[in-house]
Every structure is written in structure tokens, then in C-alpha cells.
């Protein structure tokens, strides 16, 4: 007779993932990719503003009718909102918990930070008076600016999302707040100096966040390997640049009068 050594209930797949640092990063990578895919679609939708008010407003109205008649009016929009909120919350909670842990794991700072790239030293004479042996000095590549600003960049993006929803979804803080007329509301927001500043700063933070985040997600999901590293780094840079430029194009056009 074989003894039953198994416990009745084994921890679930998601439970095992969420309890480990590796799995929590997986959750961050997956939720990050969900948000990234949404942002690509969102940016393409935003660019419709260049075709004029009727085009943009009818596009916004169409978004509420996706899936009809199978889905009721605005249901698709609400499903998308629930998925996005879940992604943002997962991403933020995992980031907060991991950051707390990371800071606790490194309680003492070094007296002198790593100098990064250093100049070649003056070569001293060897004791035998012969030719000095050149040291194999390491050109240490320090973590990039994008990498070092992930946490604060994430906080900036979180605050921006709150303002952005209050401004253009609920219209609570919008200077015009005319429901059903998103084109006019967008122009009203970007006609204020603070609207432009908040938006452009947040989009620059977004670019930096994606630049490290996309490649980091490839690394976390185990998709990265020697032959693909350049591809993922290149894709991350292209995505970061396209999204930043695509989003910033709107406030810049309002400021320059291209869109009014």
C-alpha cells in the first residue's frame, strides 16, 4: 500500500506566484503589457483629433457602441475600464510591496557610490622598471536614467491617471466640461498652462517608464535571451518614443493653434 503523502490542498498557481518575488514581477510584467497595449490603441484614437471635431467626437461616440447589439450600450467600455483598473491596481500593489522589500534588503548605502565610467589611470612604473602592464579596467555601465526613475516615475504616472480621469472622463476638473463633446473638452484642457505642463511631464515619465519597463517585462517573463536582447531593447525604445511623441502631439498642436 502506498502512503498518501500529499496534503489535501496544494497552493494555487497564482498563489505560488504572488507569494514569491519572481512571481510578483510576473504579475507586474503581465499587467504592464495589458496597459501598454491599451496605450497604443489610446494614442491612435487620440490622433484622430487632427481630422477635426466631428470625426473625433463621432469616434468617441462609437467607442460606446462597440459590441452592440450583443453588448449593451457602453458595456464594452466598462469591461475595458474594469480590466484596466485591475491592471493598474495589480501593478501598483506589486510595485509597492516589492519596493518595500527591496529597500529593506539594502539598508546601508555605500560611502562612495560607484563612479561608473572612469578615466584611464596614469600607469605607474613597475618595480622592475619595465613597461607597465595596462590594467583591465572595467567600464561599468551604470543603470540608465530610465531604470533609476522607475519608482518615482510610476508614482507620477499614478497621480496623472487620477487627474486625467477627473479631467476628461468624469469632467470634474475640466474647464469646459461639456459631456459628449470630447474634442472641445480636450482643447479646453490644453488651452490652460497647467494642463499642458501636467500632461507633457507625465508623458515624458511614461516614455522613460516604458523604455525600461518593456525590456524588463521581456526579462521577467523569460522571453529574453542572447539572440533577442537587441530586439527587445530596440522595441522598448521605439514604443517609448512613438507613444511619447504621439501623446504629446495633441497638447503641442493645441498650443500652436493647429487644433482649436
Amino acid at each position: 500500500m502506498a502512503l498518501d503523502t500529499r496534503t489535501d490542498r496544494r497552493p494555487s498557481f497564482t498563489g505560488v506566484l504572488w507569494r514569491s518575488t519572481v512571481g510578483k514581477k510576473t504579475a507586474m510584467a503581465v499587467s504592464g503589457i495589458v496597459m501598454l497595449l491599451y496605450l497604443v490603441v489610446h494614442m491612435m484614437g487620440n490622433l484622430k483629433i487632427f481630422f477635426g471635431a466631428p470625426d473625433f467626437n463621432s469616434y468617441a461616440a462609437w467607442l460606446r457602441t462597440i459590441g452592440e447589439p450583443f453588448l449593451h450600450h457602453e458595456w464594452f467600455l466598462w469591461i475595458a475600464r474594469v480590466v484596466l483598473v485591475a491592471a493598474v491596481v495589480t501593478h501598483a500593489v506589486a510595485a509597492y510591496q516589492l519596493s518595500r522589500r527591496d529597500i529593506a534588503a539594502r539598508p546601508t548605502k555605500y560611502a562612495r557610490p560607484s563612479p561608473g565610467r572612469r578615466p584611464w589611470p596614469r600607469l605607474p612604473q613597475t618595480s622592475s622598471g619595465g613597461t607597465p602592464i595596462a590594467p583591465r579596467l572595467l567600464l561599468r555601465r551604470r543603470a540608465s536614467y530610465a531604470t533609476r526613475t522607475m519608482r518615482w516615475g510610476g508614482v507620477i504616472l499614478g497621480l496623472f491617471i487620477v487627474w486625467h480621469v477627473l479631467d476628461l472622463t468624469t469632467l470634474t476638473v475640466n474647464p469646459r466640461a461639456e459631456a459628449g463633446h470630447p474634442y472641445q473638452n480636450v482643447v479646453a484642457t490644453f488651452s490652460t498652462w497647467y494642463g499642458d505642463v501636467i500632461y507633457i511631464v507625465a508623458m515624458l515619465a511614461l516614455g522613460l517608464h516604458i523604455r525600461h519597463g518593456f525590456w524588463s517585462a521581456a526579462q521577467t517573463l523569460g522571453a529574453n535571451r542572447p539572440g533577442r536582447d537587441r530586439l527587445f531593447k530596440g522595441l522598448a525604445n521605439v514604443l517609448a518614443a512613438v507613444l511619447t511623441v504621439g501623446f504629446i502631439a495633441v497638447p503641442v498642436s493645441v498650443m500652436t493653434g493647429v487644433v482649436s
Binding site: 518575488t21 510578483k24 529597500i103 560607484s114 561599468r140 543603470a143 526579462q219 517573463l221 535571451r225 542572447p226
Partner: peptide
């Protein structure tokens, strides 16, 4: 702590263990 894919470890490693090693372990 957890990994933030900073890459400082693989730069410091005297034996040149590659950063892809972490990607493989994640997988």
C-alpha cells in the same frame, strides 16, 4: 530583495554570469 533588471549584478560579477541567466530562471 527582488530583481528590477538594473543589471548591476552582471556588470560586477567577476565570473561573467550573464543577465540572461535571470530571464531563464524566471521562465
Amino acid at each position: 530583495g527582488g530583481c528590477t533588471n538594473t543589471g548591476e549584478c552582471a556588470t560586477a560579477c567577476p565570473k561573467g554570469i550573464p543577465l540572461f541567466s535571470i530571464a531563464t530562471m524566471n521562465r
